Amino acid sequence: KWTIEEKELFEQGLAKFGRRWTKISKLIGSRTVLQVKSYARQY
């Protein structure tokens, strides 16, 4: 389950980097690239 903080970081990353999942993953820190991709599908 994603925390509110992780969701906010995901949204910031999406706005800043677009669909560059590796960069978003590094920004969040606690999620892998695969987790970020998977979350993006449901987002």
Rank of each mutant, 00 (worst) to 15 (best):
G13D: 06
W2G: 08
A40I: 11
T32Y: 00
R19S: 14
R41K: 14
R20A: 13
L34A: 15
T3R: 04
F10G: 09
K37W: 09
K16G: 02
E8W: 00
A40Y: 09
K1H: 06
I28T: 00
A40L: 12
G18A: 06
A40V: 12
R31A: 02
W2D: 10
F10R: 03
T3L: 14
Q42A: 11
S25G: 10
F10K: 07
R41F: 08
F17H: 07
Y43F: 14
K1C: 08
R19C: 11
I4F: 13
F17E: 05
V36H: 00
K7W: 00
S30L: 06
K26A: 11
R31K: 09
L9T: 07
R20E: 15
R19I: 04
T3H: 01
S38M: 10
T3G: 10
L27C: 06
V33C: 09
L14S: 06
E6K: 15
K1P: 06
L14F: 08
K7C: 00
E11K: 14
F17M: 03
K37D: 03
R41Q: 14
Q12W: 03
I4S: 09
S38Q: 14
Q12D: 02
L27R: 02
E8L: 08
Y39V: 05
K23E: 14
F10H: 04
L9W: 06
E6Y: 06
K23Y: 06
W21L: 13
S30V: 03
W2T: 06
G18N: 08
G18T: 01
K23F: 07
Q12A: 12
R31T: 01
K26R: 11
A40C: 06
K37L: 12
W21D: 08
L34K: 15
S25V: 14
Q35F: 07
G29K: 11
E6R: 15
A40E: 02
K37V: 13
R41E: 15
E8R: 12
G13F: 14
L27I: 06
S25F: 14
T32A: 04
R19M: 13
S38L: 07
L27V: 06
T22D: 15
Y39N: 01
R20T: 11
E6I: 14
K16C: 05
L34T: 15
T22E: 15
Q35E: 13
L27H: 11
S30M: 03
K23T: 08
V33H: 07
Q12Y: 04
T22W: 06
R41A: 15
Q42M: 10
Q12G: 05
S38D: 09
K37Y: 09
T32C: 07
W21K: 00
G29Q: 13
Y39R: 07
F10D: 02
G29W: 15
F17N: 03
E11V: 09
V36M: 06
Y43P: 09
K23H: 05
G13R: 06
W2Y: 04
K16S: 09
F10W: 01
T3Y: 07
Q42K: 09
Q42P: 05
T32I: 00
A15D: 06
G13I: 06
A15C: 05
G18R: 10
Y39S: 03
T22F: 07
K16W: 11
L9F: 03
R19N: 11
Q35H: 04
V36D: 00
V36E: 01
F10S: 06
G18M: 08
L34N: 15
I28A: 00
L27G: 03
K37R: 13
W21S: 01
A15W: 07
T3Q: 01
F10P: 10
E11G: 07
Q42E: 12
S30R: 04
L34H: 14
S30W: 00
K7Y: 01
G18D: 01
I24K: 02
E5Y: 00
K16F: 05
V33S: 13
K26H: 07
K1Q: 13
S25L: 15
F17P: 03
I4C: 13
W2R: 03
V33W: 15
F10M: 06
T22A: 12
V36F: 06
R41H: 13
K7N: 02
E8G: 12
K26I: 03
A15Q: 14
T32W: 11
L27K: 02
Q42H: 10
K23S: 09
K26N: 12
K7Q: 12
V36K: 00
V33Y: 14
R31D: 03
K1E: 12
E6V: 12
K16N: 08
R31F: 03
K7P: 00
I4M: 13
E5P: 09
I28S: 00
R41N: 14
W21H: 01
T22C: 08
S25W: 10
L9E: 01
K23D: 14
E11I: 08
R20G: 06
Y43I: 12
E11R: 07
K7E: 03
L14Q: 07
G18S: 02
K16M: 12
E5A: 11
K26Y: 02
K1W: 08
I24H: 01
T32H: 01
E11N: 10
I24A: 02
V33A: 14
V33G: 06
R19E: 15
L14T: 02
Q35R: 10
K23P: 07
R31N: 01
E8S: 13
Q42I: 10
F17T: 03
K1L: 09
R20W: 01
R19P: 15
Q42F: 10
A15L: 10
F17W: 12
L34V: 14
T32R: 02
L9Q: 07
G13V: 03
I24W: 05
A40F: 15
A40T: 01
S25R: 04
E5N: 11
K1Y: 11
I28V: 10
F17A: 02
L34Y: 14
W21Q: 08
K7M: 11
I24G: 01
R31E: 00
G29E: 05
R20F: 12
W2S: 07
W21M: 10
T22R: 10
K7V: 04
Y43T: 10
V33D: 04
V33K: 14
Y39H: 02
S38I: 06
G18I: 04
S30K: 03
R41Y: 10
V36N: 03
Y43R: 07
K1V: 08
